[in-house]
Computed example of a mutant assay.
Amino acid sequence: MAMSSNREAPAGPVRRVTLVTAPFAGGALATGIAFLLFRDSFPDRVATHFTLDGTADGYSSPAAALGLYMLVFVIEAVGTIAAGFSARSALTATRSLTIFSIGLAAATAYILIAAMWTTSGSDGHTPELPLFQVPVGVVVGAAAGTAAWLITRRRA
């Protein structure tokens, strides 16, 4: 009598890369949509870097800012892919890294959108990103990661 196993076969390299990078593509898409919604309210120079106290200290043109935002998602995706291929267990690492990617992409998208929102309302003044936005971004990322974990956990 053959015994069936509920264990999944390890995902191939293309599937692993897709699973791990899809959240970053989603985060980039959400950020791009927000950029399109805010673009008419941006000043000539968009704040792209903030000090620890929340004051803007780096600026770019709106097009360059969008490029920098997308570059952040690419760097995060590449780092996560590298972590996935260096892991010993492909199945466990893929699930864990996908959940991590979902949380990181959600937190990044939230913070970038908050920065755009801050810049759009600056009206020629130095934009200030309220410091509470960073912990809120962490909570958004943790909530997204927790939701992904709950959805994907295996039932015994």
Score class of each variant (00 low, 15 high):
residue 4 S to G: 02
residue 85 F to Q: 10
residue 89 S to H: 14
residue 79 G to M: 07
residue 48 T to K: 03
residue 155 R to K: 05
residue 9 A to F: 13
residue 41 S to P: 04
residue 99 I to F: 06
residue 42 F to V: 04
residue 133 Q to D: 09
residue 149 W to F: 15
residue 61 S to V: 09
residue 70 M to E: 15
residue 146 T to N: 03
residue 97 L to C: 04
residue 125 H to S: 09
residue 37 L to I: 13
residue 1 M to I: 05
residue 57 D to P: 02
residue 33 I to D: 01
residue 74 V to T: 14
residue 94 T to N: 13
residue 68 L to G: 15
residue 32 G to N: 06
residue 29 L to H: 07
residue 105 A to H: 00
residue 89 S to Y: 09
residue 13 P to H: 03
residue 140 V to R: 01
residue 139 V to C: 00
residue 55 T to R: 12
residue 156 A to H: 07
residue 47 A to I: 10
residue 17 V to G: 09
residue 140 V to E: 02
residue 88 R to Y: 03
residue 9 A to L: 13
residue 113 I to H: 10
residue 58 G to A: 12
residue 6 N to H: 09
residue 85 F to D: 10
residue 114 A to N: 00
residue 71 L to E: 12
residue 57 D to W: 05
residue 84 G to K: 04
residue 42 F to H: 12
residue 54 G to W: 09
residue 16 R to Q: 13
residue 92 T to N: 14
residue 19 L to V: 04
residue 24 F to P: 00
residue 156 A to S: 08
residue 44 D to V: 07
residue 17 V to I: 13
residue 140 V to P: 07
residue 151 I to R: 11
residue 99 I to H: 12
residue 136 V to H: 01
residue 144 A to E: 10
residue 66 L to D: 14
residue 36 L to I: 03
residue 120 S to E: 06
residue 25 A to W: 04
residue 5 S to G: 04
residue 79 G to H: 06
residue 53 D to L: 06
residue 120 S to Q: 02
residue 12 G to V: 12
residue 108 T to D: 11
residue 4 S to V: 07
residue 4 S to E: 12
residue 111 I to N: 03
residue 49 H to N: 04
residue 139 V to P: 00
residue 136 V to Y: 03
residue 99 I to R: 10
residue 141 G to K: 05
residue 49 H to M: 02
residue 46 V to G: 10
